[in-house]
Computed example of a mutant assay.
Amino acid sequence: MNVFDEIATHYDDDLFHQVVAEKLVAGLADAPTPDLVVDIATGTGAAAFAALQHLGARDVVAVDLSAGMIARALEKAAVQDPEGKIRWQVAPAVPAPVPDASADLVVCASSLHFLGNAALKDWLRVLRPSGTIAFSLPLATTFTPSSAFAPLVATDLALPTTVAEAAAVATGYLNPVAHRIEASSGRVAFLVYATAPA
């Protein structure tokens, strides 16, 4: 059992993950309705469910390495996705288990700092021309992973301290935009949006 399986049952007790996922996806509400959304490292499915609610996504593939997380997501799906639009997959995030140039939108909430630059490069493969990425990153100065998670943090991706640094993480993409959000608990995250080349 990996560390993510171990925390799956209580993952949703930390409401910050839900807030980040909701705000990340809701930030795309004015964009055209996507045919296929790929939610990378979905956890218990917050961003995948938000893609249905806020974007009216027609098809969602939600991927996570943790069978425990996917099991918890499936329990929630009975209520939040009664039509079964989301396809849940226990699989590595990189490479994403979807065909080249198949997705309109790739979402990654609260996980890119574990995946690193390999994920950003893979999303260029996954996205259709002019497709969109939306991801979040924690604020470098307040990010304090536990001893179980610290070794899992990617070493090839510098965590941002400013909005400009967060936007700059989207290397290889066009028109990156970042926003800073802060929860009542004082925890901070950056929401980043960018477009794949046409």
Rank of each mutant, 00 (worst) to 15 (best):
F190W: 04
F16T: 11
F4Y: 15
V79E: 15
T42V: 07
D59L: 02
L159M: 12
A31T: 12
T144N: 14
S146R: 00
P160F: 01
D39L: 09
G45A: 08
V177H: 12
M69P: 05
G131K: 09
F135W: 03
T162I: 02
A78M: 10
K23I: 01
A194I: 09
V153I: 12
A170P: 11
F135Y: 11
Q18P: 00
A167V: 08
F143I: 01
L15G: 12
L157M: 13
A96E: 03
E83T: 11
F149A: 00
V60N: 04
P99S: 09
H179S: 14
F114M: 01
A29V: 12
E75V: 14
F135I: 05
A46I: 00
K121Y: 01
D104S: 04
I70R: 05
H179D: 15
S111R: 09
A109H: 06
D100K: 08
T171H: 13
Q18A: 14
A170G: 06
P97Y: 04
H113T: 02
A47Y: 09
D104I: 02
V63I: 15
V63R: 05
R187F: 12
A198S: 15
P138A: 01
V90N: 03
L191T: 07
D35T: 10
Y173P: 10
S185Q: 04
T141Y: 00
P32A: 02
L120D: 12
V79L: 15
F190I: 09
M69C: 04
V3R: 15
F149C: 01
A101Y: 03
V106C: 13
T33M: 13
L174M: 13
H17L: 12
A189T: 00
